[in-house]
Simulated assay, not measured.
Amino acid sequence: MGKKRVTSFDVAKRAGVSRSVVSAVLNDTPGIGVGAETREAVLEAIRELNYHVDAGARSMKTGRSMTLAAYGDTRHPLFTRLLEGMQRECELSGYHILLCSPRHKGNANGRAELLELYHQRKIDGIVTLDHTSYGDQEWASRIGDAGIPYVSVEGYAEVSGVYSVLADYSGSVETALNYLLREGTPQQPGPVYAEVYHEHSADNWAERNRRDAYTGWCSAHGMEPVVIRLEEHHGAWTECLQRLADSGPQHAPLLVNWSSAIPDLYRAAHKLGLRIGEDVRIMAADDTIQGHRLSLPSLSCVEIPYVSMGEEAVRCLHTQMNGGMGAGQAEKIWLPAVLRPGESA
């Protein structure tokens, strides 16, 4: 036989108060004043009886599950960093996180299951980590029709009516270029921009913003922009580095859009006998793999703030759950990148 569950009635009896007083202590119910001595008596009874709130009963009463869904690829390091931020913010509000992930690449059923979880009152809102070109109108319509609090991190940048937390990629490039050509660095030719692409980034808004920010910065500084496009993991880095060598006695500094391309670039430089940070200065505009920690010499980069984006996504959900966004509040929240100086630039 299992041990009988302790209830709020047992707590009230031990503390010598009514169940409404116990409820007021547990939930900080507004309008019900509880004196310090009475509150301590209730808390002492809770400790003595090892009482735990019945989450199911609380959910029926409040209409809240106190759980948020986080949807993304659990194998991806960026999702892990997003979760770190979500967890920080959830701890402040007493919320838990339910991890949800597509069963295999391209599977849309995982998102359909999120809708079921919400209708079953198992979650109160949804955060998805999407690639920057994501903008599924059908999913957005289903979320909107159901009235589900929802935030996409990195997705729907160019779609109205969907709340998104986004990185300021234009600002990240400007920050990187200003650091590359900061005061005190050797006089060099204008910076070269290496745009590494894969299936999702051939020409999405993030890459366009970065590219436009680079060309705009060069124009503002009287420099000729040079953009080199390379396919991920098949980039011809040797040829790229040779172009830098041909740019003059001093190699032009190189800005790469992703740090995930840096290992291949470092290997190519080593084969050519080039010293990173001395013969050629390199920087990344998006620290996708936290290359500043993993590379030698350490990589100078601009880090996309996924932890802060996770925190902001949870705040945005709470705002929606508590009555929606007020007048003048944008549905797109843009966060600045963070400069991580290293030895490579």
Rank of each mutant, 00 (worst) to 15 (best):
T238S: 11
L294W: 12
H270A: 14
D124R: 06
S152K: 07
Y179I: 10
N27G: 09
V21G: 03
Y163F: 08
L99T: 01
G323W: 13
L83C: 04
V338L: 11
E224Q: 07
L244F: 13
Y169N: 14
R5C: 05
V151H: 08
L255W: 07
N50K: 15
Y150I: 00
R88N: 05
L78N: 07
D203I: 00
S23A: 15
C218N: 05
R340L: 03
I333Q: 15
L78H: 03
S93R: 02
M325N: 05
H119F: 05
T319I: 12
L296C: 12
A220Q: 11
Y193R: 01
P102V: 08
S59C: 09
E158G: 06
E231A: 07
C240I: 15
D136G: 04
G135N: 05
S164Y: 00
R47F: 01
E195Y: 14
V314H: 01
V22N: 00
E89L: 00
A236C: 11
L82I: 04
L335E: 08
Y156V: 10
A157S: 06
S65W: 09
V196H: 04
D203G: 06
S259D: 05
L98Y: 00
S295E: 05
P341M: 10
G85H: 06
S259R: 07
L129V: 03
T74P: 07
E343I: 00
I97E: 00
A261W: 14
H131C: 04
K271Y: 12
K122A: 05
E232Q: 11
I276P: 14
T7L: 11
S23W: 10
W139K: 08
R243W: 13
A345P: 02
L230T: 00
V165D: 06
L274G: 08
D73C: 06
K61H: 04
E40K: 05
I148R: 08
A206H: 02
G326I: 06
G326R: 14
V192M: 08
T132V: 04
L166C: 04
L68R: 08
I126Q: 12
N178A: 10
N209H: 06
G16S: 06
G135I: 02
H119L: 07
P77T: 01
R315Q: 10
E174S: 04
D286H: 15
L26G: 02
L68V: 02
E195I: 13
I333M: 13
T62P: 09
N50E: 13
A167N: 04
Y134E: 14
D124G: 02
R211D: 01
G248W: 10
A36V: 14
R19C: 09
A55R: 13
E331P: 01
R19P: 11
E195C: 09
D145L: 11
A313W: 00
A327R: 12
L317K: 10
V338T: 13
V53Q: 15
L255C: 09
R88E: 12
